[in-house]
Design a protein around this nucleic acid. Structure first.
Lengths: 231, 231
DNA sequence: TAATTTAATAATGAATTCATAATGCATTTT
DNA sequence: AAAATGCATTATGAATTCATTATTAAATTA
């Protein structure tokens, strides 16, 4: 049957919204390089928009901390510093811990199912040594836990912090050893969630994040010793 | 002596930055009423700016969650709902707890001194039944603790959440009884900070916030029963 | 008289234009 | 030859304009 009831309303995001998403992705994926200027005009031409929505998007991303705006000198992609990283991680830790607690309380069976499924897919990638795939599923699991927590504000806040470090996290390759450890930690995460042991889950998540942090920290330190070519 | 060394560079914030701050204040102070439309053109005239920086500011505030943008229908001041409040408070709780821990670790003697001083000023307001003054100092104390934590990202994140509920918090008048209790809690906060008892401080801060939440919650519920006149 | 349609008005979204600030280059001066 | 100054070019910030969409008021019809 086809009634008018179950039609989803047309929802066309405004240009500047599409642009913010698009640019955010470009930053995370490294299309826009950290430290480099954002060529406003060039981007407008490439993406086929005028400067107004582009500038609105830049302002939003700057407020998000992904860009810095230098008056009359345009925007630069903000490179994450070690100092900033050391500020962001404890914050993310606190939020993950909270997410864990809430997820244990509120997760529906369906949401647990989703976590389980993604966990399995992630394991498969690990066994196949598929690092990009692993990262993708890894991210999905953490987002699924956030979802299960059922607190949209928490999700939004967490994600806006996560974006900032995601690129560094992606670039910082794990050792095989660390990778194995991370997978083990994920097993613990899943089982704590299954048994709805809030205290345990929240502790593991925090620890898991701290371990990740150590890896990324090391990578940044190496970066500073062997800086990439600048133009 | 006057060398060229100790000159501070001229830093003129761009128009849209000034505007975001200005509008944010107007929202918190209730000049822009929750639920009402933001009269874009009128504001432009009153503040003597063109629409471009105004629109950029609106986009930023919308990304911050203070406004909602309805395509082709402009911006509205976002009224905080009970649902949202119940999402925001646990988050703020987690952040306050973290701030407490970090403050106990990192606070300098000078920063402690600042907290003490503000605490005293707040007490004076309480004794004089000066509610607005109390609120101002109360806010300053919590900001001073954030400062003492020495994590700028934490401060920024916390404040962006705090703005959303600040207006509701301000409007929700406390009973005399609750006010006394809040003051007592503040005594505990100060002493935990003095003795740098991280666990204790973080627990008290969380509890303190939960109590505040209960008051605001009650207020919102009453609001829903006796809604203010709409036009 | 009430409801529905149509027209007029107001306001928003996006593009264009204009003004101003910054950068690079050439010329001049020491 | 090196440094500094002035000029030209380029890019950004802000205002204005144009086109589209929503809201309202009015008019017509049932």
């Amino acid at each position: 049957m086809s009634t008018l009831e179950n039609l989803s309303s047309i929802n066309r995001p405004s240009l500047h919204e599409e642009l913010t998403d698009r640019l955010r992705t470009m930053i995370v994926e490294g299309v826009l390089v950290a430290g480099e200027k954002v060529p406003e005009r060039e981007l407008c031409e490439k993406l086929g928009v005028s400067r107004t929505p582009m500038r609105e998007a830049l302002k939003v991303l700057a407020a998000d901390g992904l860009l810095t705006l230098q008056p009359n000198r345009g925007a630069r992609v903000r490179a994450i510093t070690l100092d900033e990283l050391e500020e962001v991680f404890p914050l993310m830790g606190a939020l993950e811990a909270l997410a864990g607690e809430l997820a244990c309380k509120n997760a529906t069976e369906k949401q647990l199912q989703a976590v389980r499924k993604t966990h399995k897919a992630m394991l498969a990638c690990f066994k196949a040594s598929d690092m990009p795939g692993y990262f993708r599923y890894n991210q999905q699991i953490h987002e699924a836990i956030l979802n299960a927590a059922g607190n949209k504000t928490l999700t939004t806040t967490y994600l806006s912090l996560a974006v900032r470090v995601r690129r560094a996290r992606y670039l910082a390759n794990m050792s095989q050893q660390r990778w194995q450890a991370a997978v083990d930690e994920h097993e613990l995460i899943l089982s704590a969630l299954e048994t709805r042991d809030a205290g345990k889950l929240s502790a593991i998540l925090k620890q898991h994040l701290e371990n990740k942090f150590a890896t990324v920290r090391q990578w940044i330190l190496n970066q500073q010793d062997n800086p990439p070519p600048q133009e």
